[in-house]
Write a protein that binds this DNA or RNA. Structure first.
Lengths: 158, 158
DNA sequence: TTGCAAAACTTAGATAGCGAAGTATTTTAG
DNA sequence: CTAAAATACTTCGCTATCTAAGTTTTGCAA
């Protein structure tokens, strides 16, 4: 009997390559952060806070494309490490504003060059035009998929 | 005092976009798999086994770019669900060969179209040439980063 | 042949991520 | 003004992932 389900060779699967690349990035990032005693999860929230210090947890979750429970967990760890401070909003007491501590400012000087370096390493031997195309494709795919995920959760059984 | 650490806007960061896209893929995949009672981790191992039924756990970990403990955990769950069967290799008793069960064959017919569909959704409105470029860039970045990760772990303090 | 190194797997403990459900606060509808 | 809905956060329990360290088996070398 012939096999009627065509294969999708991993190398030509967008999902496969994106996943592989993601983990490669994450491993290198973790490797560079470990000497400072930081885990890779911190990085994303630190970067968001360097741009929007005092943001609410919900806002930080959005900037990072993670859910709120994830934000709570990581920010909790960051607070215990003294990198951020959480403050209940006085006007709207549902909100919690997150502020960087002095410690985090030192980290910025230490970590920003690392981020640049990792992007350099990743893009070695790849033309600027190719990288631009890749970034653009990744962005459009994320948008396409986010739309689909929303559709899936709002139209459950279909 | 001027800020001497240049920002890396997330939209122009390869790491950021790859991570965002990865999670978008994973969410949609999970959403499509949930009705079948499967988690997204199963998919990657199933695909590998459809190509190399009977492979060892080490081999499956390599094909998936995950570590051996990860493979053990996911394959354990798959075995408990009756999707695979593990068999100690008679010649070299260190090895464990992994075989698909009948149940997994049914899943192939069910899941392969889903995988194709998700890649279609992701690539909607993007030209074939752009996608080819993106795949190629992702592959080269993964290789660059994997090399760096190896360097980091073999030359610890440098 | 014995003994040590390497290989394949496993266990243990940690971090991220998720969805579902719970709590407190604010907003809105009637 | 009050009840219901929406918002922001939290808690809980799960999966996936990692590193480090342990077990069993095999292979190589003195």
């Amino acid at each position: 009997m012939a096999d009627l389900t065509p294969d999708l060779p991993p190398e030509h699967s967008l999902g496969f390559q994106v996943r592989r690349c993601h983990r490669a990035f994450d491993r290198v990032l973790s490797g560079h952060l470990a000497p400072s005693g930081l885990s890779s999860g911190f990085w994303y929230f630190l970067r968001a806070l360097w741009q929007e210090n005092g943001a609410t947890q919900k806002r930080l979750a959005q900037l990072n494309n993670v859910t709120e429970p994830t934000a709570v967990a990581v920010l909790g760890a960051m607070e215990r490490m003294g990198v951020i401070r959480r403050e209940r909003n006085a006007v709207d007491r549902r909100k919690v504003n997150v502020f960087l501590t002095e410690r985090a400012d030192d980290l910025k000087a230490e970590l920003m060059p690392v981020a640049h370096r990792i992007n350099e390493i990743a893009g070695a031997g790849i033309s600027a035009a190719e990288i631009e195309t890749c970034l653009s494709v990744l962005q459009r795919m994320s948008d396409n998929l986010t739309r689909e995920a929303t559709r899936l959760s709002t139209e459950p059984a279909l």
